[in-house]
Simulated scan of single mutants.
Amino acid sequence: MAEIQLRNISKRWGAFVGVHKFDLTIPDREFLVLLGPSGCGKTTTMRMIAGLEEATEGDILIDGKRVNDLDPKDRDVAMVFQSYALYPNMNVYENIRFPLKVRKTDSGGHDERVRRAAEMVELTDFLHRRPAELSGGQRQRVALARAIVRQPNVFLMDEPLSNLDAKLRVSTRAQIKNLSHELKVTTIYVTHDQIEAMTLADRVVVMNKGIVQQVATPTEIYDRPANSFVAGFIGNPAMNLMEGELRGGTFVGKNVRIPGLKGPDGAVTLGFRAEDARIADKGEIAAPIYSLELLGDATMITVKAGGALVSIKAPKDFRAEIDDPIQAGIPAAICHLFDAKTGERIDP
């Protein structure tokens, strides 16, 4: 059981700021995802919690105890890395058991704990094999079992699925979700994949350039992004963002005119989700089709509007050709407004 408090932690290397004043409380048993593009500071934040990086300033508390000066081995955290870091000369059983030997725990309970951890990640039939005889997904599950067998207070997972192919990512993601539910251990998970973040997290921390952009549940982040960066990063596809002006409650941009909005006149960025728009006989966007993509369950149409490529989800039986003129209904109710300069959300 562990509550983690990060009190204004920062990490700097000379003039370069990797993480800037990260302040957050992570309740016991929460599954928190640190999400952002490469170089945003998410892995650095995790490494400071683990003790693999020293915080330049700020305090890290685990269960109310300041751990800044503790070695990694004394923080009772278990890490799962992007690289599996398995011992090639040991079989799966010994790889899973290794943390227990290093920590000199009572050997009498080793076998039960190893087999229980292996069962949780469906590796019972592979305990005799060596890493070279396993697939990438199986190796990642060995790494998960090795963390589980420790029975730590905190799990730290650094992009554990990024080396897997698309199908394996889906199945392993489901296993991690189930393990989180079963183990009920505070977990911090780092990823650049917003689908992983949305499907796994209790809360998501979106980061960019070392700064926290938004902390909220996946639903809140999807429905009410705090700024245009979050809006353009979350979603598949990401939210459409168009530049234009608000004039008396009407958004005006190239090939687009949307009335019924609330906000101050001037330059704004308008956003909407592809699945919220619709193809119409008469709509707020009128433009030729730029591209068409059949997704199986839908057809994704792309047009140029508001100085950007804009995606609109149509039914799977929609038929048209590139350069055909279309119109799309973009009612004010589905729109989000952001300040053109700061990117901050504009609420009515």
Rank of each mutant, 00 (worst) to 15 (best):
I9T: 05
S10R: 06
S10Q: 06
G18H: 06
E30I: 02
F31M: 12
L32Q: 08
L34P: 01
E54F: 00
E57C: 12
G58M: 12
G58Y: 10
D59M: 02
L61V: 13
V67E: 03
L70W: 09
P72S: 05
K73V: 15
K73Q: 15
D76G: 02
Q82S: 07
A85T: 05
Y93Q: 02
Y93F: 14
N95C: 10
K101S: 10
K104R: 15
S107R: 15
G108V: 03
G108W: 00
G108K: 07
E112N: 11
E112R: 15
R115T: 06
R116P: 00
R116F: 01
E119N: 02
V121E: 06
L127F: 10
P131K: 05
G137S: 04
R141N: 08
V142K: 07
P152G: 08
F155G: 02
E159G: 07
S162E: 00
L168D: 10
R169E: 09
V170K: 10
S171E: 12
S171D: 07
A174Q: 14
A174C: 03
I176H: 03
I176R: 00
K177A: 13
N178R: 15
H181Y: 11
L183S: 07
K184E: 13
K184I: 00
T186V: 09
I188F: 05
V190G: 01
H192M: 08
I195G: 01
L200V: 01
R203K: 15
R203M: 12
N208C: 03
I211C: 08
I211Q: 14
V215Y: 07
T217E: 11
P218S: 03
T219L: 14
I221G: 04
I221N: 06
Y222F: 15
D223E: 15
P225H: 03
S228R: 10
V230Q: 01
A231Y: 04
N236D: 13
A238M: 09
M239R: 05
M239G: 05
M242A: 11
E243G: 02
G249P: 08
G249T: 09
T250E: 13
F251H: 11
V252G: 08
K254Y: 06
R257N: 07
L261N: 07
K262A: 09
D265F: 04
D276P: 03
D276N: 14
R278M: 04
R278W: 00
D281G: 14
E284C: 00
I289V: 15
Y290F: 14
E293R: 00
L295S: 13
D297N: 14
A305N: 02
G306R: 02
A308S: 15
K313C: 03
K313L: 06
A314F: 02
A320F: 05
Q327I: 05
A328C: 14
G329N: 09
I330C: 11
A333V: 10
G343D: 06
